[in-house]
Amino acid sequence: MDFQKQPHYLGIDLGSSYTKFAVINDDGDVVNSQVLPTFGRRRERFNMAVDLMHKNYSIQKTCTSGYGRNSQKSDIQKTEIICASVGVSQSNPVHKCIIDIGGEDIKVIESGSQGEVIHFHMNDKCSAGTGAFITEIAEKAELEIGEMSDLAQASNANRTINSFCTVFAKTEILGWIFDGVPIEDIAMGIYLSITDRVCKLPIPHGLPIFLCGGVITHHPFLKQLIESKLGVEAQVASHPLYAVALGAALLARKSDSQESRK
């Protein structure tokens, strides 16, 4: 039997910056994943991607997640916190802490071995320490996002951005540039200040830590900094960018099997 005709499930994570798609088969294996900038008013690319997945796979159910979860027609909608917890639990069925650093927020999730959310914390009000923060500051410092991790690794500096506010932080970086601070140290400074923000969140003690989200995907060096600041080992979740989309797909599969049991 053509494997594509077997039942598949689609999870869509409509995040503040990017939309991530994950298609899983009935065994829960990811068979397709992709990422697009989250649409503004133009939905063509999004619609094309969804159409293509329906063409290529026999999608039984779709679950949307993320800020835009209610903006699309889907079978079920679940928050990104629930989906991250389920997504990361697939390969890590243990009591754990998930730190999801996204475009506009950071979430700390205490997650049970079966994917249940035990407790969570989500930063509000301000984008400090998130992907949007990095993008804005890096732009001011004329840093390429893709090069930041390599640059920071070459730095021994221990200087962080003081300001909590993205606008003030940009001014602070401008000061660094005027002072002739080397570019590696600027990259390091941005990472250190993110690490600071992350480590100030209420992270439960004694649990294995899993990192996911767009920021850790594009800035792998942050893992090392977070580990040394927290004094514990952390792992990057498999499919870190797609943890929420994967969780959504798994929940779509779950709702399908619950319905067929009825």
Binding site: K78, I81, V86, E116, V117, I118, F120, M122, L250, K254
Partner: peptide, 27 residues
Amino acid sequence: RFFSDGQSKTKIETFIEQLKEKKPLLL
């Protein structure tokens, strides 16, 4: 201006689900 509908909805929905689902979510 100090209230975000999107963030609050996400938090409240997750919290309610968390309370409801004291049972496993994964299959």
